[in-house]
Design a protein around this nucleic acid. Structure first.
Length: 154
DNA sequence: GCCAACGTTGGC
DNA sequence: GCCAACGTTGGC
């Protein structure tokens, strides 16, 4: 069964435009160093799952595109790269600690901004809007997915 | 830059 | 296993 997710990216690192410009509009979701977010990618995501591409830590945070999970999970190569900010000296090749999936942008949309999300009736309990939420990957309920994709005309 | 909220680390 | 200290996230 198809599931739905919201995935945060800092546009300074990988924006929706960067992803669109990549081969097959697909980017590896590198740099996740939170176990809960990793577990979503490693244990629950399936190819074809729907993804809301979200820009965070920027002037106008919000949902900026529709994407999909485009690979099964595999080890995040940046954990073994000494020059990467995501290098993890505690992770071993035989037993990688961090996994990721590839994400393919299906459609760039307008920016459905955080203030707009917060004030849209029906989205009050979207996981990413919950107080104190910091998770970079959160599940999205089917009804939220339907409402948001409709709002975006996607 | 500030700071609330949360996650991780490490001493005990 | 507890919990204080510290680090990170991310909106503002």
């Amino acid at each position: 069964m198809t599931q739905y997710w919201l995935m945060k990216s800092e546009p300074d690192e990988v924006s929706v435009d960067d992803a669109l410009a990549a081969p097959k509009s697909t980017v590896p979701w590198t740099g996740v160093r939170n176990y809960q977010a990793r577990n979503f990618m490693r244990d629950q995501m399936r190819v074809g799952d729907g993804v809301l591409f979200y820009h965070s830590s920027c002037a106008e945070p919000g949902i900026v595109g529709i994407a999909q999970v485009a690979s099964t999970p595999y080890p995040d190569p940046t954990q073994f790269d000494r020059k990467s900010p995501y290098y993890d000296p505690a992770s071993r090749q035989e037993e990688p600690r961090w996994s990721l999936v590839d994400v393919q942008v299906v459609k760039k949309t307008r920016n459905l901004t955080l203030p707009e999300l917060r004030t849209t009736p029906g989205l009050e309990d979207l996981v990413v809007l919950r107080k104190g939420n910091r998770l970079s990957i959160t599940p999205v309920e089917p009804r939220h997915w339907r409402q948001i994709t409709k709002l975006l005309g996607a």
